[in-house]
Write a protein that binds this DNA or RNA. Sequence first.
DNA 1: TCGATTTTGTTCTCACGTTCACAAGCTCCT
DNA 2: AGGAGCTTGTGAACGTGAGAACAAAATCGA
Lengths: 252, 252
Amino acid sequence: MTPARSRRPGAPTRTERGIPEATVARLPVYLRALTALSDSGIATASSEDLATAAGVNSAKLRKDLSYLGSYGTRGVGYDVEYLRYQIAREIGVTQDWAVVIVGIGNLGHALANYSGFGTRGFRIVALLDADENLVGERIGDMIVRDFAELEEIVASDRVSIGVITTPAGPAQEVCDRLVAAGVTSILNFAPVVLSVPAGVDIRKVDLSIELQILAYHEQRKSGEAALPEVPELPAMNGVVTDLPSVGGGVGL
Amino acid sequence: MTPARSRRPGAPTRTERGIPEATVARLPVYLRALTALSDSGIATASSEDLATAAGVNSAKLRKDLSYLGSYGTRGVGYDVEYLRYQIAREIGVTQDWAVVIVGIGNLGHALANYSGFGTRGFRIVALLDADENLVGERIGDMIVRDFAELEEIVASDRVSIGVITTPAGPAQEVCDRLVAAGVTSILNFAPVVLSVPAGVDIRKVDLSIELQILAYHEQRKSGEAALPEVPELPAMNGVVTDLPSVGGGVGL
DNA sequence: TCGATTTTGTTCTCACGTTCACAAGCTCCT
DNA sequence: AGGAGCTTGTGAACGTGAGAACAAAATCGA
């Protein structure tokens, strides 16, 4: 097999920068699909095959891949292993990323036990909590350490990614500490909007929001008639006050 | 997904009678912000206040709210309680939704313990697992039941939402069972693409995808030079095979 | 070598989402 | 009453994303 086209350094648009966000968000999905195909012993796959495995349509998949370069072969398809490596490299998971988890409640426990941290490419270097009663507890092959050790750990282990699994209350403070310590990417599970300085990336995972989105569509499905009628004027102290604390929940 | 073929150019997709998907996804965030304001004793808020609390810009917030109706007062702002109720009603969380959780591993445990299921509007009616060793275990005030009882539970409790927290392997089968039993909305935590018939809504939460997206941006930040050079030819049995099972992890 | 066949990479067009900017509308003050 | 000052609701401009369609490359067979 010969390279489709010789790419010299400085060649046209190898789009080293400028992959659209929507595409970036799908690359991990493609990566997983490729791994599955690889595990099934499949060496070559067409955009159609891949698209099916990833749950998207083939035109979109081809366009996404075209941002990375020309890694397919016309008339043939994509070499599974090769493409997998290219995507992994583009995402950055050919190297290990050190991760700290802050807040060892139910969810923190679950993540800590997440076998192999799900996929490799990520390595949990510390589980932190401010609760004295938790510090010292053994989870898998790790031991919960005091949140006060954060700065030291981040510095010595070159940690760039932090996961926040605290309740909503302390989340912003934890976030600030993480940022001050040098963490530049944060995955937030606390049900609160965190503010971070420019240059720090933040992503949020929120169970109750997901459920509410489902509920909206569910409501549409089960008869529009089920919609309660709108009180036309602000009935502030009547119906409204009966509403339970919707949307204000405490952390996982 | 969108049935309406007769649409004017420029008009956003409205689900049935109105609200764009992107807006629906933000309504729960506004709801939470409103609840926070309400808890702080604030009775009225401008779009600017609200936008800040929700982490969006005010123009977007106003446009989003305009899809629901005209619930603000020009020159004044929004009545917090009134708007909160209107959004809750639109989403459908003024009523309770029955939820089953399937797969009581680490994550299932965490979700089951999620106090009050985070926000009300949702009520866990059963924790299910196929593992004999887990069935009967007490979690909070619930007891793990056998997955075989699914159909019965869904029917008697009018369950419309299912949460899948199994490993990737059994996820599709669990999904099929849920759908067959009458569940029409599914929240999937298993790292696999599920296929469902039309009419069933599915949303996915995937930790490792979130981390990979962060890693991509992180890689960009820490010097572009850090990018390993591209092997020009498909080095299929060399470098590539060393790649660990990126992206193919087992479930939480 | 040439043509048939397959499948990628890309272009073109339309739909969707975000943001700007401002008229409409409300309150308060004089 | 009338004007000043705010803030909402929305029309229009702009940018991003999705999908259809097709030309360009690669393989295969005669």
